[in-house]
Design a protein around this nucleic acid. Sequence first.
DNA 1: GCAGAATGAGAATACAAATGCCATCGACTG
DNA 2: CAGTCGATGGCATTTGTATTCTCATTCTGC
Lengths: 226, 226
Amino acid sequence: MAKTTDDQEGEGPSWRQRAVSKSLNAARSRAEQRAQKLLDAAFSLIDERGTTEFTIQEVVDRSQQSLRGFYQYFESKDELLFALLEESIRESAADLQATVDSESKPLARLRAFTIRLHEWCEPAAGTRRKRGSHNRVPISEFSLQLALKDPDRLIAVMAPVSRMMVELLKAAAADGSIRSIEPRRAALLVQQAAMYGWIMNRFVQNPQARVTAEDTWDFCLRGLSG
Amino acid sequence: MAKTTDDQEGEGPSWRQRAVSKSLNAARSRAEQRAQKLLDAAFSLIDERGTTEFTIQEVVDRSQQSLRGFYQYFESKDELLFALLEESIRESAADLQATVDSESKPLARLRAFTIRLHEWCEPAAGTRRKRGSHNRVPISEFSLQLALKDPDRLIAVMAPVSRMMVELLKAAAADGSIRSIEPRRAALLVQQAAMYGWIMNRFVQNPQARVTAEDTWDFCLRGLSG
DNA sequence: GCAGAATGAGAATACAAATGCCATCGACTG
DNA sequence: CAGTCGATGGCATTTGTATTCTCATTCTGC
């Protein structure tokens, strides 16, 4: 089953490792449960408010725990947000992989990936969230802050997605679908357009004038062709 | 001349008006001078630290004024930063206009504009700042935050630059240098690439692999051609 | 049931933004 | 020249939130 980078049963996500290792192994599952409750509470607050501006107090109230407890599992509020980001990326990476795998031609795969990535970062107004999925916009915003204050950390957590993108670009270039340019550089350009395109959409009031995932892909495709 | 903002004291003889307005002007200029000193102090702190993380106290200390005074001129720290952003944009708009005017062909003008805009938002490592000019990266970061929390405000202050860009795109399209697409939408795509390309450069360690202004322009040009 | 770890409740601290308060200064007024 | 009024300076204070500390209570493994 798990051919992925981190085998679930032993380690789990890195936030889990960090949180759990802070308490003794004996209490492992209890700790995980508690940490998870904190994450859930934070997610629900984010979903309700559409922003990461909640207080730790609200998180602990909602998850019926104590401040003391919170800081036992997370070093700071940023660590909590980072954990949420990790979760989101894990979720989206799996989905992106599935999306890509539903296509066979390199260019179609690249297209599917780009558009899906865009949708993850800025779900269109009409897009209904899947059950259990969360409002990712505030998380995208957090990722942006992270890019500013701790890029290395963001690189690390984004690595699976970035790698996927680079591979797709390589394949498309090998295939002749796009011109050959340094895939890492191309990946940066496309990632920026897809992941942070929503920033510019904040500038337009008229929904008609928004830049859609399709627009973005079109722009990128042309930018990539020879 | 006489059509100043403060002729509401329509009574009194003109000498009186002049006197009053002179005194008001004196007060105004005193005030402007003070506000300017605050801006200068903030700029110098930003330049030294490469971040907007200074305290108001530091600003007033450095400009030899009082906290009380600060809040007389600026409603909040954000207002101060906003003022700095305005100044920066004023500065860059003038420069962009000059840059554009040094070219005649529409496409060349568009290119010059795009590259210069990129340089403004992320001065390349080697680029020495002109005397009197400031470190604009922290200001770019602030503009990003503003885009998140108060897009309208950013639109307003960026308007001159945006308008310039739209005009250039229209001209290039009319000229046939680029394909005809809705100029506003195109402007969003290009602005994003040029203004916020530096975000992605935070992800690369190797200076060779950075996305330069030229790379960005090349990508945009292809994205815009038919 | 016990020792010691884990947890809860909430007070206490740290810090920076923002306001309030009052004495003073200084330019104009009469 | 003395008084008025707005602008200032200097502080202390309030506010909001993250983060830490303390101590009493509960839980776990034995």
